[in-house]
Design a binder for these strands. Structure first.
Lengths: 167, 167
DNA sequence: GACTGGCTACTCGGATAGTGAATGTCCGAGTTGCATAGG
DNA sequence: CCTATGCAACTCGGACATTCACTATCCGAGTAGCCAGTC
């Protein structure tokens, strides 16, 4: 039950996007360079975020990705689901259907108490993730690490600038 | 983030064990036949449960698996962890360590607020699973499906009996 | 100088290989219970 | 009849293939900005 590492990339990537000027797009390549990640694969992850409507993509020379809506309206669950898919972690293959006295008409995902117990845990997990917005996370980070926004902006400005300009 | 299907098998398998006479061992092959599952693979899953101390294994002719301790002292989390491993679902690869201004001495699994938020969700999930014991689940099933224990016992008696004896 | 046209560079997007874990299968070591032979 | 002994069947346990999803990479379609040429 390992989560895709793309989730971590997406969370940190979106968080960084909150610190950029609104409407400013960042190419996936620069975002990857920020953490020294494989650019093409990070791009793939952000494609998923774009399909989910969390980020908006812009092609062309000054294109890239930007947040599609207010960070206040983006929950951590949104991001996780966009990358991992909405399916539940616990797979109920309706084992009881194959057991003795099974009724083909019954939906054992509902009737099976094992499935229900696992679903409760799944919901608790989702509730916790849905309760935290990207804006809230941003605020927490800024409170604990006040220099983070400026550091991020400076780093991106450096990445966007052709090398040699600063030296 | 898909959970191994062995978890479902282990949960239903352990639940069935609670309905058998205490000390009575059931071979993995019979347990597999109960739900028409691949016997050798189910055996593999129960090996993991045995290593975790949840079930005890007995070799030999009338051997098999039985619960190693009182169902009251077995939580659903115990079973899930035995199959899936105790690692957290969210992988924190300490992305911040590769970012700008990283401190090699810092443990970013603790410092990173993204990691903390994911860990909170993970803990909520674990708390929910740890709150439910196998005995509690057994009681819930018996309350909703009173015939379940007897049906299970009868089915196992039939499986244990050499064919032709009943006819 | 302002405008138009084309062109280049850069972006995402999806189609295409590589890798590792989960899944599935098999055979051997060891133990139990039973049948049997002997006391 | 009771006991000791050998045997045979059955069990788990781990070692060995196979499959599938995740990981990683590459190239093409399309767009935005820029530069040159023209009015």
């Amino acid at each position: 039950m390992r989560m895709s590492e793309g989730v971590e990339w997406a969370l940190h990537g979106c968080l960084n996007l909150t610190w950029l000027p609104p409407g400013r797009a960042v190419p996936a390549a620069k975002l990857a360079e920020f953490y020294d990640l494989p650019a093409a694969y990070l791009n793939k992850q952000f494609q998923a975020l774009a399909r989910a409507g969390i980020v908006a993509s812009t092609p062309g020379k000054r294109g890239g990705f930007r947040l599609a809506r207010d960070p206040e309206r983006i929950t951590l669950l949104d991001i996780v689901v966009a990358i991992e898919g909405g399916g539940e972690a616990f797979r109920c293959d309706e084992l009881l259907r194959r057991g003795p006295g099974a009724d083909p008409g019954t939906d054992y995902r509902q009737a099976c108490l094992v499935s229900q117990a696992m679903r409760r845990a799944d919901l608790a997990w989702r509730r916790e993730l849905a309760a935290q917005t990207l804006a809230g996370l941003k605020a927490d980070v800024e409170r604990r690490y006040p220099a983070a926004p400026e550091n991020t902006r400076a780093r991106f400005a450096e990445l966007m600038t052709p090398e040699g300009t600063t030296a």
